[in-house]
């Protein structure tokens, strides 16, 4: 038995020779990784890997190639591999980037591509740092909805205009690229850091939340927003394109206009 299916409307006739995607260009790179193996040596050192990669590859693919085909001891974090989970922030050619969102072809492949762990957090192994101080600051700003009164029976209504006030800061994936790019954070790790302020901003300017004043008070600390020197490293580093420095400035303004 055979049934004749109608042709799908999306079908497009291709001319012979068209399609198939063609050859992906390949090139040779040197991946220069800052290694730290606490089991073996006391100090970190640079190690070069010569790899043949393709035009569609990202720095993460190069790290995978090293780990899977050259040296299985190379350690780094990654989960989603598509810029969503925030696990693979690292210093690529001296700038904080997600390895899974950085295409090799966009870097200068004629020179070694340097890959290091993010700065300012305790280094544990290779590209892995202890994220605990980062999350400690995050927890301190109470990143959850706090509302007074009774639970509404319907939705907590919010107008599009009210939502627009903090829409940008809802995009954070907690990758720590911003906080670990901040020279004020590097010094002693005491500064709350851009990521904590971004996530405080997300609730301070949320019309449904009632604990904005508490968060402003927390960030009025000597290690809070006033340590920001508007270096813009954080805005430059954020893989989600969040206007981090602007968010910090808005929190400063909110503290001033509420308490002066």
């Amino acid at each position: 038995m055979s049934t004749e299916l109608p042709e799908p409307p999306s079908k497009i006739e291709l001319k012979p020779g068209v399609g198939g995607g063609g050859e992906i260009p390949s090139f040779d790179i040197t991946l220069r990784v800052r290694r730290f193996l606490p089991e073996a040596t006391a100090d970190a050192y640079w190690e070069d890997f010569k790899l043949t990669m393709y035009g569609t590859d990202r720095v993460l693919d190069a790290l995978h190639k090293v780990k899977w085909e050259h040296d299985g001891s190379l350690s780094f974090r990654r989960s989603c591999a598509h810029g969503v989970c925030g696990s693979d922030a690292m210093r690529i050619n001296g700038r904080n980037r997600l390895a899974c969102k950085t295409l090799l072809k966009d870097l200068d492949t004629s020179k070694p591509i340097t890959v290091e762990a993010i700065k300012g957090l305790p280094l544990e192994k290779d590209l892995i740092v202890d994220m605990e101080p980062f999350f400690q600051s995050y927890r301190e700003i109470m990143p959850f909805l706090i509302s007074k009164g009774h639970e509404p029976t319907k939705e907590r209504y919010q107008s599009a205009e009210d939502h627009a006030k903090f829409d940008d800061t809802t995009k954070c994936i907690l990758c720590a690229a911003c906080t670990s790019s901040c020279p004020v954070f590097w010094t002693d790790g005491q500064y709350f850091g851009p990521a904590a302020i971004v996530n405080a901003h997300r609730f301070i300017f949320d019309s449904r939340d009632d604990a904005g004043d508490m968060r402003l008070e927390i960030l009025n600390d000597k290690e809070g927003v006033w340590r920001c020197r508007t270096t813009f490293n954080c805005s430059e580093a954020c893989p989600r394109g969040i206007q981090v420095t602007k968010a910090i400035a808005e929190v400063k303004q909110a503290i001033l206009s509420r308490t002066v």
Binding site: E132, P133, Q136, S137, E140
Partner: peptide, 9 residues
């Protein structure tokens, strides 16, 4: 254990 400065002053 690397001495982590977890606690802010």
């Amino acid at each position: 254990r690397i001495d982590p400065k977890y606690k802010r002053g």
